[in-house]
Design a binder for these strands. Structure first.
Length: 541
RNA sequence: GGCGGAAUAGCUCAGUUGGCUAGAGCAUGCGGUUCAUACCCGCAGUGUCGGCGGUUCAAAUCCGUUUUCCGCUACCA
């Protein structure tokens, strides 16, 4: 039986369309999923939407539709976006799905029965005009942070989750499992800010709004966010349903990919819930960094966030996916600018990879009429290429285990550079003038074609479309030479390569011109406002 | 306030447990080449590794201190 691999994204809050920050998490998860599939794992890749809560209820009301109608339209849009970005998820869970709703009710009941959930009183500050609860901390000088008016103390009967009960076990688990929280700096934040000072019990029900999962045995209450949202990772697999085969097969998750702002929920509340349910904990939570906008104030409230749809339509999925994973270190924040994006596309994709393919295919066409002869003679530079091809595969494998996407791509690109250098070293245009040396020339072309085959397999997880273009132009049809195993040794491609010249894969972009055009679409704010603004800050994961 | 990060070439960043003339990519300059998407290849740089003090034969790397920036600080997701 194949080894399983279960990877998840956060479930996104469909209060509005998603932005590039959400795409970032999802592209990363998709890439790791594709990579693991390529390595022969039985992969489950889960994404979805977290659809309940007061905010959605309010927006729907403003729009004059039901909450369900409202989220339906956003969810359709999200699914289209993932299709556009070539996200190959296995399951798309919605917290309004029947299977999820029923399972959450069972989970809630189970926790109540075990004494992990108890009824008590929640005391909060309520702003009547805004119809919102606030905590003491959220208040601005004792007033409503939204409208500035007075708030009143309101007591609400609520259910609480006994988070405090699991404090010691959590500390132990986190400290004993080095890879549980990644990157490790997040681990210290959790321990010092929450676990060491002591955990407070968590309010897990509300009566102030209706748009949520009703508590089965107490109909006035709805299950509050985190019990609802976090459960998705197991309800999507059929936990607490009639058919829990997938749960038994895939749980615990190998990695939950989340933005760093929700690491807390995933490393404290979620494990505590699982402990209370007597279920195994996920193996790893990876809190990636944010994309920071430099030169543009991007926040949802301003309505000028970076729209992934526009970027993809303009520059292509593979370019955007490549950029996201290459430019930024996965665990850290990174500056997103249009200029960086365009520079990356030009230098790495157009000049290095695209041009390598183009010149290789061009020469096979020009010197051999599109088909290499069987008779080929090796040269002194071949060995270096062959050895490096082997090394690169190992490097990519090692980086991918640690989710170092950028490092993996850098390794692949150093091989691409090596291939471009090989062309210079062997000077095919000189050999082409000499009929006697056709066999040497043919070998050079073969080494390049075979290298491109290997490159095309290596980039598969990151860029789903480019490999197809490479395969078409080099006439690679046999699926046996598109596997990961097939790139462990140099020479999988038959010697008599025939080519089919195609269009340029990554056209060069006139950066100055393009930037000017973009600026027209998105007005640049005053320099003084340029202060970095996280585009996915604390919103809607 | 508490806790945790970051500060390295013009720009974006690498630099495991202290040991190299401190690196890469981009941008810049010069040279080469012409198969290719004015591409590719080579060479050349510049750096008080935030400041100060200390440990050491040796510190970007460890310790102390200081400056600036950033993150987390629980029931909004």
């Amino acid at each position: 039986m194949k080894k399983t691999f279960y990877v998840t994204t956060p479930i996104y809050y469909p209060s509005d369309k998603l932005h590039i920050g959400h795409s970032y998490s999802t592209v990363a998860a998709d890439t790791i999923a594709r990579y693991k599939r390529l390595r022969g794992f039985d992969v489950k890749f889960l994404t979805g939407t977290d659809e309940h809560g007061q905010k959605i209820e309010r927006i729907a009301k403003e729009k004059g539709v039901t909450p369900k109608q409202y989220v339906d339209t956003i969810v359709d849009w999200i699914k289209d976006l993932w299709k556009l970005m070539d996200i190959e998820y296995d399951i798309f869970i919605r917290t309004t799905d029947d299977i999820h709703v029923k399972a959450v009710q069972k989970i809630f009941k189970k926790l109540y029965d075990s004494g992990d959930i108890y009824k008590s009183e929640y005391e909060g500050k309520y702003c009547t005009p805004c119809e919102t609860f606030f905590t003491e901390r959220q208040l601005v000088e004792g007033k409503c942070p939204d409208c500035g008016r007075d708030v009143e103390t309101v007591k609400e009967e609520s259910y609480f989750f006994k988070l405090s009960r699991y404090q010691d076990r959590l500390i132990k688990h986190i400290e004993e499992n080095e890879h549980f929280i990644q990157p490790s700096t997040r681990k210290n934040e959790m321990i010092n800010n929450f676990l060491k000072p002591g955990l407070e019990d968590l309010c897990v029900s509300r009566t102030s709004f209706k748009w949520g999962i009703p508590v089965e045995f107490d109909p006035g209450h709805v299950v509050y966010v985190w019990i609802d949202a976090l459960s998705n990772y197991i309800t999507a697999l059929g936990y607490a349903s009639a058919d829990d085969a997938d749960y038994k097969k895939y749980w615990p998750a190998d990695v939950h990919i989340v933005g760093k702002e929700i690491v807390r929920f995933h490393t404290i509340i979620w494990p505590a819930m699982l402990m209370a349910l007597n279920e195994p904990l996920p193996k790893q939570i990876f809190g990636h960094g944010w994309l920071i906008i430099d030169g543009g104030k991007m926040s949802k409230s301003k309505g000028n966030v970076v729209d992934p749809q526009i970027l993809v339509e303009k520059y292509g999925v593979d370019s955007i996916r490549y950029f996201l994973l290459r430019e930024f270190a996965f665990g850290q924040d990174g500056n997103f600018t249009n200029e960086l994006l365009l520079k990356r596309i030009n230098s790495d994709l157009a000049n290095d990879l695209g041009n390598l393919l183009s010149r290789t295919v061009g020469m096979i066409d020009k010197y051999f009429g599109g088909a290499l002869p069987a008779e080929q003679t090796a040269n002194g530079f071949d060995q270096d290429i062959i050895e490096m091809a082997k090394t690169v595969v190992q490097q990519v494998e090692s980086h991918m285990e640690k989710m170092l996407f950028s490092d993996a791509l850098a390794a692949i690109w150093s091989f691409i550079s090596r291939c471009n250098k090989y062309v210079d070293e062997t000077t095919p245009w000189v050999l082409a003038k000499d009929e006697e040396r056709k066999a040497e020339l043919a070998n050079i072309m073969y080494v390049l074609a075979e290298s491109l085959r290997i490159i095309s397999v290596l980039i598969c997880p990151f860029m789903p479309n480019t490999p197809k273009a490479i395969e078409t132009q080099l006439n690679i049809k046999d699926s046996a030479i598109k596997t990961w195993d097939s790139i462990q040794t140099f020479g999988g491609l038959g010697r008599q390569v025939t080519i089919a010249k195609g269009a340029v894969v990554f056209p060069r972009i006139d950066i100055a011109k393009e930037l000017e055009a973009i600026e027209k679409d998105i007005p640049t704010p005053e320099k003084s406002e340029v202060k970095e603004t996280p585009i996915n800050k604390k919103e809607d994961e």
